[in-house]
């Protein structure tokens, strides 16, 4: 048995002049959630589409479940599930009809397909809406149905392309729970996301992708250490106090504080989150520095990229790229 669920070596994929993937490497061990984190246009979807046999690669090679995606596509398809960036279910059919149809197309017998549909409807808490048209479903329900459809076959490897983009926090939690329960049953999951938080919540390992290649990878903790973890942020009321506040922050920070003059803001990564916050709050008060706002926050994806690449997440993608799912 292969030790990796997914193995990609130097994958290249060009769309005309555009290099969507440019030497993309990935090694995903079995049985874990692997997060692929990157901004718009980084190449996440292209990577997923190549690994799920939907598009051909121009160079390099890739194996899924020990099978070559280029030469053993049919066999690969028996072992994977895919939930693409948009909930790909038939909106005219009901939830139950969708799952039965996909079950049949996964070559389950008629009876087995019907049983499996019931199991999944129950697992994803969709029994109540099972006989309603998908048009009446909320975004979260659609996503869950989409996930259910991608899990009909208990795939060895499940690909989830931005499964929570466009969902409200509740829908997001629903999807996260579904993913967690799947992984508990031994499926390997490759999950792409634009949210650091999501990768942190779900993934045992994260790869950061930028301009078609992986620029950093490791467990979330080491990645967070690399990018400085959580940040403390202080906004002072009087800009004159900014450098004094920066000095206070510097005492607890794990790196040089960054100062934003116009916003009167100073922020820096911290290791001991709560201790740092109380320490800074107390010292500022003792020193009589009036504070507009103080708090801890996660680094944004922008900061991650700035840190890892020295450039901001590419903004030069056309604004028309659709991000909200139907």
């Amino acid at each position: 048995m292969p030790e990796h669920a997914i193995l990609a070596e130097g994958i290249r994929k060009n769309y005309g002049e555009k290099r969507a993937l440019d030497g993309f490497d990935l090694q995903v061990p079995k049985g874990m959630v692997y997060g692929l984190l990157g901004p718009n246009g980084a190449g996440k979807t292209t990577a997923v589409r190549i690994l799920t046999t939907l598009v051909r690669l121009d160079g390099g090679r890739a194996e899924v479940a020990g099978l070559d995606v280029a030469t053993q596509a049919r066999q690969v398809r028996r072992r994977i599930g895919l939930a693409g960036q948009h909930a790909a279910v038939d909106e005219i059919l009901t939830g139950r009809q969708n799952l039965r149809m996909f079950g049949r197309l996964f070559h389950l017998g008629k009876k087995r397909a019907a049983e499996r549909a019931e199991e999944l409807l129950e697992q994803f808490d969709l029994l109540e809406a099972a006989d309603k048209g998908i048009k009446t479903y909320s975004g979260g329900m659609r996503r869950r149905l989409d996930l259910a459809a991608s899990m009909i076959f208990a795939p060895d490897v499940l690909f989830l392309d931005e499964p929570t983009t466009g969902l409200d926090p509740r829908g997001r939690n629903e999807v996260w729970d579904a993913v967690r329960s799947l992984v508990a049953r031994g499926t390997t999951v490759l999950l792409t996301t634009q949210y650091l938080d999501e990768a942190d919540q779900l993934a045992g390992r994260i790869a950061v992708i930028d301009r078609g290649r992986v620029i950093a990878d490791g467990p979330p903790e080491s990645l967070k250490r690399l990018i400085g973890g959580d940040r403390i942020e202080v906004v002072v009321r009087d800009p004159a106090n900014l450098s004094a506040a920066a000095a206070v922050v510097a005492r607890v920070a794990s790196a040089e504080p960054e100062i934003d003059e116009t916003a009167g803001r100073v922020h820096a990564p911290v290791a001991e989150r709560v201790a740092a916050l109380t320490e800074v709050a107390r010292t500022l008060q003792d020193d009589g520095i009036a504070v507009e706002d103080i708090g801890l926050r996660r680094p944004t994806l922008d900061e991650v990229f700035l840190r890892l690449t020295g450039h901001r997440a590419d903004d030069d993608e056309p604004a028309t790229k659709e991000k909200v799912q139907a």
Binding site: T52, R77, G84, A88, E91, A326
Partner: peptide
């Protein structure tokens, strides 16, 4: 809607 892609990613 991605339904075609789903079909194409399946062993059908």
């Amino acid at each position: 809607r991605g339904v075609t892609d789903r079909f194409r990613s399946m062993p059908m």
